[in-house]
């Protein structure tokens, strides 16, 4: 699990008030962890606040697990610029 994934897990755990170690990244948040639809929206409100990502509404419906959320955030957050290659540094 990379740093971003860990950060998201911490944030989701805080929103849904479930200890981090009890969240299986592949468990369905709604059917297995007792998250209701409003709390689902709160997760995205928290993500919006932390990463400034505006999740399109049709994408909200496809979310079920923590891994789904992580993939979505990775997709929607701007990536850091790639390191320049060795040759480019010298020039």
């Amino acid at each position: 699990m990379n740093n971003l994934s860990k950060e998201i897990k911490t944030l989701v755990a805080k929103v849904i008030k479930v200890p981090e170690d009890k969240i299986d990244p592949n468990a369905n948040l709604f059917t297995q962890l007792g998250v209701d639809s409003l709390l689902g929206v709160e997760i995205f409100a928290a993500l919006d606040k932390k990463y400034g990502i505006d999740v399109p509404e049709d994408r909200l419906r496809g979310i079920g697990t923590l891994n789904d959320i992580i993939r979505l955030v990775e997709e929607l957050t701007p990536r850091p610029p790639l390191l320049k290659r060795e040759g480019e540094k010298r020039s």
Partner: peptide, 13 residues
């Protein structure tokens, strides 16, 4: 949980 999520809800609604 972050406070003040009402702004996000207002946007959604």
């Amino acid at each position: 949980m972050p406070e003040g999520t009402s702004e996000y809800w207002r946007k959604l609604l």
